[in-house]
Design a binder for these strands. Sequence first.
DNA 1: GTAGACCTTGACCCCGGCGTCAAGGCCAGA
DNA 2: TCTGGCCTTGACGCCGGGGTCAAGGTCTAC
Lengths: 143, 143
Amino acid sequence: MRIGELAERAGTTTRTLRYYESLGLLPARRTGNGYRSYDEEDLRLLQQIRTLRDFGFELEETRPFVECLRSGHPAGDSCPASLEVYRRKLAELDECIARLGAIRERVGTQLIQAERARAELEAAATAPEGAPEPRCELTPPGP
Amino acid sequence: MRIGELAERAGTTTRTLRYYESLGLLPARRTGNGYRSYDEEDLRLLQQIRTLRDFGFELEETRPFVECLRSGHPAGDSCPASLEVYRRKLAELDECIARLGAIRERVGTQLIQAERARAELEAAATAPEGAPEPRCELTPPGP
DNA sequence: GTAGACCTTGACCCCGGCGTCAAGGCCAGA
DNA sequence: TCTGGCCTTGACGCCGGGGTCAAGGTCTAC
């Protein structure tokens, strides 16, 4: 199978496959005329890469999975190195989710307060006495 | 105040301030010799920018807040455009958190299964009969 | 007058993951 | 034989947010 067919079957582009090859992630055999040549096994490797990438893994993080498959294991995550990547990724995801959650809370609070401030402002505009516009601002999380 | 002092007081760099100026985000007056000149108000604008950036806002998203402050409001989020950015950001955060949460679940499940597969594999290696290595792999989320 | 600490503009570099040309080779069908 | 569709390598571009030179101007202190 040539590069165009593999790309199409995997739902990606030839550019991507050449890029992976340049990283040594998915090397290709060559036919006599210099064309890249792939087989079904390469398709599996490629699918493993694309699947992990869809989950937010960086290309380098997919390498253990690919090498695991290439070394004859039936699944990319049959090897300790792959499990280690899973664990690192889990920790990363947990931390990221927690951080975003904290920010979400602060932004949400901020929005409520700012909306209330505006409501009071409009009420003040309706009423004759103009109270000073209250200050409420997103403050830095501290050093 | 010149650029170096403002940068230091805001905990950033002169390069950053020049970059913001190139975006029209934080324009500077000039003294006779061509040096940039800032005042306390500029420091406030800059702090607003840095605070929002710490919360993951892109520079362009801070623009409404800065313009709100510059137009004389006591807080960057006193204006409707700023509130709109808050709301968009909240929606963005919620979606991102949900997406990461779903991925976290899948990766976590995958890790458990792969660990169990390895445990069975080792048990099989201890026992004389080698059962076929079970396949379990992260599968694509579907088209 | 000269050292050194500031300032100026301009330009290139970085990260990841490709997209998008450009110029040319290889092969099949009419 | 020629056209069209594949393939090859190489090179530049993009995204955001600046880092890091380079070459030169300006001011102050000694």
